[in-house]
C-alpha cells in the first residue's frame, strides 16, 4: 500500500514538474524575446550562466535527491501512527501546512549559514528576470527534508506535501521579473508577487531576509518577516558579497568557499559550529566582518 503511494508520488511529481516546465520554458523564451524588443542582448552573461546552472537542480534533485526525499518522508510517515486524511475538507489544511513547511524550508535556507551557502546560488543573480528561476541550487532537497520531515511525522501525506512543495517554485516562475508592477494592495499582502518577491531577492538592509512565503505571505505576516517594496528604496539585487563572475563553477562555489575558509580559520569548535549553523553575516569571518561586502545601498536611500 505504502509502496504504491510512493510510486504515485514519484509519478505525480514527474507529471507536475513536466507541466510546470512548459510554463518555465515559455517564460524563458519570453525573457529572450522581451530583451530583444527592448534593444538589449537577448542573452547576457548572467542569463547564460542561469541556463547553464539549470541542470544542476533538476538533474541532482529530480534524479537523486528527490528520490531520497520521498524515501525519507515515507520512512517517517510509516513510523508514525498519526494520519491526516486526504479529503476535500482537509485540502485547505494541507495547503496551509504545506505553506508553513515551505516558509521554514526557505527561512532556514537563508538563516543557517551552511544552507545559505547552497541557497545563495539562486540569489547571486544581479539581474532580476525570468531566467533567475533557472539558477538552481544542488542541495535544497536536504533542507526541504529538514522542514518537511516533521510534517510527515505528524501524519500528513507525503504525496500532497511534495506536490505543494513543488507548486511554490512553479508559481514563482511568474514572479521573477521587474517588468510587471504592483497588483492590488490586498493581493500584494496575501500572495507572492513580482514586487514582493523582488524584495526577497534584494540585498538592501531593509529587504534582507524578508518574504519567505511560497504562494502566500501568510506565514511571513505571522512571523514578522513580511516587507513590502518601498518606493524610497529601490531593490539592489544579488548578494551583499557579490560573486562578480558569470562562471557557473565560481557561482556554485562562491559562498561554500567562504564557509570553508571561515570554518578552517575558526579558533575553536564552538566557533566552527557557529560558522556552520549560525546566521550568515553574524558568524566568525576570517578577514573580519563585512569585508568584501557591497555598501548598504538601501540605508542611504531610506534615510
Amino acid at each position: 500500500m505504502e509502496g504504491d503511494l510512493a510510486t504515485t508520488v514519484a509519478k505525480a511529481i514527474t507529471i507536475y514538474g513536466t507541466g510546470a516546465g512548459i510554463f518555465l520554458l515559455f517564460f524563458v523564451i519570453s525573457e529572450i524575446f522581451l530583451r530583444w524588443r527592448e534593444g538589449k542582448r537577448p542573452l547576457g552573461g548572467e542569463g547564460l550562466a542561469n541556463i547553464v546552472l539549470f541542470p544542476f537542480g533538476p538533474l541532482l534533485e529530480a534524479v537523486i535527491l528527490n528520490g531520497l526525499l520521498i524515501a525519507g518522508m515515507f520512512m517517517l510517515y510509516n513510523i508514525t501512527p498519526l494520519r491526516v486524511p486526504v479529503e476535500l475538507w482537509t485540502l485547505p489544511i494541507y495547503f496551509l501546512v504545506g505553506e508553513f513547511g515551505y516558509y521554514w524550508f526557505h527561512r532556514i535556507g537563508h538563516e543557517v549559514r551552511i544552507l545559505w551557502a547552497d541557497h545563495s546560488i539562486h540569489h547571486s543573480a544581479e539581474i532580476y528576470d525570468f531566467t533567475v528561476n533557472l539558477r538552481h541550487t544542488p542541495f535544497s532537497t536536504v533542507y526541504r527534508f529538514i522542514a518537511w520531515g516533521p510534517l510527515a511525522l505528524l501524519g500528513f501525506n507525503p504525496l500532497v506535501l511534495v506536490l505543494i512543495a513543488m507548486s511554490a517554485p512553479a508559481f514563482q516562475s511568474l514572479c521573477h521579473t521587474e517588468r510587471v508592477g504592483r497588483f492590488a494592495p490586498w493581493f500584494e499582502w496575501l500572495f507572492c508577487t513580482p514586487s514582493n518577491h523582488a524584495v526577497h531577492h534584494a540585498s538592501n538592509p531593509l529587504y534582507i531576509d524578508r518574504n519567505y512565503g511560497g504562494l502566500l505571505n501568510i506565514w511571513d505576516h505571522v512571523f514578522g518577516t513580511y516587507q513590502r517594496l518601498e518606493d524610497h528604496t529601490p531593490p539592489v539585487y544579488g548578494l551583499t558579497r557579490p560573486v562578480n563572475s558569470n562562471n557557473p563553477g565560481t557561482i556554485l562555489l562562491h559562498e561554500f568557499r567562504y564557509l570553508a575558509r571561515d570554518f578552517r580559520a575558526a579558533p575553536d569548535w564552538r566557533t566552527r559550529l557557529n560558522v556552520l549553523f549560525g546566521k550568515p553575516g553574524k558568524t566568525f569571518e576570517a578577514d573580519g566582518p563585512g569585508k568584501g561586502m557591497r555598501p548598504a545601498a538601501g540605508l542611504e536611500a531610506a534615510e
Binding site: 507541466g19 510546470a20 504562494l215
Partner: peptide, 21 residues
C-alpha cells in the same frame, strides 16, 4: 475574484503534464 485562481497553481501544470503523457 483573483483568489479563485489559487487551485490553478496545482491544476494547470498537472493538466499540462497529463496532456504530455
Amino acid at each position: 475574484h483573483p483568489a479563485l485562481l489559487l487551485p490553478l497553481v496545482l491544476a494547470v501544470p498537472m493538466t499540462v503534464g497529463l496532456m504530455m503523457t
